[in-house]
Simulated assay, not measured.
Amino acid sequence: MAKRKTTILIKKVQPQAVRHSGAWKVAYADFVTALMALFIVLWLMNTSDQVRKLVAGYFNDPMGRASVTGTDRSGSADNLPLTKSNVKQLKQRLEHAIEQMADLKALAKQIEITVTPEGLRIELMETKNGAFFETGSTALNASGRELLGLIAKELGDIPNNISIEGHTDAQPYSDPGGYGNWELSTDRANAARRLMQSTGLRTNQVSQVRGYADQKLRLPEHPLDPSNRRISLIVQYMERLPAPAAAPIAVTVSKPAGEMPGASQASAAKTAAPMVAAEPAKPASPAARIAEQLLARLHRH
């Protein structure tokens, strides 16, 4: 008998490419989110209560419709309102900026920055030969223009109002036309206002310009001392940001059926007067809830 031939088929299987899972991306995203939350907590722990309120206000209303908003400067809080809690920060910033000006180092003793119940007071005191104004004149000299321009740029970034005062010593101003210390103190304060508004202050930032002549001497025991002639800039405190006025919602009250024309005046008044309905509370966004949790942990620690 003939032998059968056995046929052997060999199939080569091509190895398939290993598909990698994308689960690591989710884990990495969670890690980065947790790291960002840690950095936010560490930053908030070293900031003032005012900054924390502004951060919470941003998370509660990212569109910026609320009255409390954050700064529009990346990584800076220079334009925050001046309050009693952060007044020392502005004082140090101004002192540092003045120290950097080489032309003003010789006049450092003529510049005095103090914290008062009214706000941050910046006083530019004159010398016998005139430090910031020409002697007996309302014209600012080069040092006065440079210093006031520097201060205007620093104060123009904050929303606080500023009042400007002019003072003189007790020496009578000799002018046959009747021009005296009252006019000189007021005109110098106005000269400072015009320069500061042209170099940094907003047009509506100056709330008051006052001239006191010699009625508020810096050194009452030395009424003729040149330092009594000075310009005072007061950055007024802003304890609270103004809340926007909520417009009332008018609700039309329909006249009940069958009501007779002879209804009482009280009923007619209720029908005519608009009623104010409270707006329903909006649910907090996820970002707002995260911010509240972070702030709650900060208060506990």
Rank of each mutant, 00 (worst) to 15 (best):
K3I: 13
K3T: 12
T7K: 15
L9G: 06
K11G: 08
P15E: 01
P15T: 00
S21L: 03
D30W: 15
A37C: 12
F39I: 04
W43C: 04
D49G: 03
Q50F: 01
K53G: 09
N60S: 14
P62K: 06
P62C: 08
P62R: 07
R65K: 14
V68P: 14
T71L: 04
T71N: 08
D78M: 07
T83S: 05
S85I: 10
K88P: 05
R93W: 03
M101I: 07
L107V: 04
T114M: 03
V115T: 13
E118F: 00
E118S: 00
E118I: 00
A131N: 02
T138L: 07
A139V: 09
S143F: 09
A152P: 08
K153T: 07
L155F: 15
L155E: 03
I162S: 04
T168F: 00
A170R: 10
Y173P: 06
S174E: 11
P176V: 01
E183T: 06
L184D: 08
R188H: 14
N190S: 12
R193A: 15
T199Y: 09
Y212S: 02
Y212V: 05
Y212L: 03
Y237Q: 02
R240P: 04
I249H: 02
V251H: 11
V251S: 13
E259P: 06
A263R: 15
A269R: 06
M275G: 06
A277V: 08
A288Y: 12
R289M: 13
E292R: 11
R300I: 15
